[in-house]
Structures are given as C-alpha cells and as structure tokens.
Amino acid sequence: MAVASQPLRILIGKVGLDGHDRGVKLIARALRDAGMEVIYTGLHQTPEQIVNTAIQEDVDAIGLSILSGAHRTLFRRVLELLKEQDAEDIALFGGGIIPDEDVPTLTAAGVKALFRPGAPMEEIVTFVKGLKPQG
C-alpha cells in the first residue's frame, strides 16, 4: 500500500586538521542532486565523531575527504571503530591527495573506493549509487 521511499543516506565529512572543504561540498551537492540524503558534518571531525554520527544517522555509507596526508591513520581508525561498533555494513569511501602506493593498502583494509584529483564527478556518483540502501 504505502510507497516505499528509501533514498540512500550518505555521511559526508572531513576528518583531521585540514580545512579545505571546497571539494567535499561539491561532492555533497552532487550526491544530493543525484537524489540522495546527504548528512554533512562539516570540518575537523574525529574518527569517533564520524562513526557515532554515522550510526545515529543510520547511513549506508561514509565518504571522507582527507587532504592532510593523514589518510592512512584516519581511514584505518574509522574502519576499526566501525568494526568495534558492529557497524561494518556501513561502507567507507574517500577522496583526497592519496599517493598511488597507499591505495592498495587502504582498499585491502576495507576502504571501498578512493577518488583522487581528477576523478570525474560522474564516476563518484555512479559508485555511490551502486551501494544498496539498507532499509
């Protein structure tokens, strides 16, 4: 009877100390324009804040922008916390200045996708759309 309406819910945020949020806002807007509900946390989040927020918001995925060079530590910490909280069903993806050699390590650790400078917006949106809504 009732029409099921279940847009993807995606948390978009920035962890760590870098304050460059132009890219992340573009991503947030592109996902919104693709029909998703985007929860934007703003700058300077800790991995703990990100994971707690993701659980309260019941998101399908977390997308993090990291331009500070601390990506190895921060992505791993988020994955650890998701595991601790029994929330590994929430997909983690990210973007930023991430050197070639770090990509295989992070994807092996569980980061679903990494988008680096020059990644077309279409590619990012298509990837996120491919994540299944939970509800």
Binding site: S5, P7, V38, Q49, T53
Partner: peptide, 12 residues
C-alpha cells in the same frame, strides 16, 4: 528528492 542535511554541523 535528494537533501543536504546540515543542521548537525552546529551540533557536532
């Protein structure tokens, strides 16, 4: 149908 939910920026 999309939405940008940003209220909690002020509540983090």
């Amino acid at each position: 149908g999309g939405a940008l939910l940003g209220d909690r920026i002020r509540m983090q």
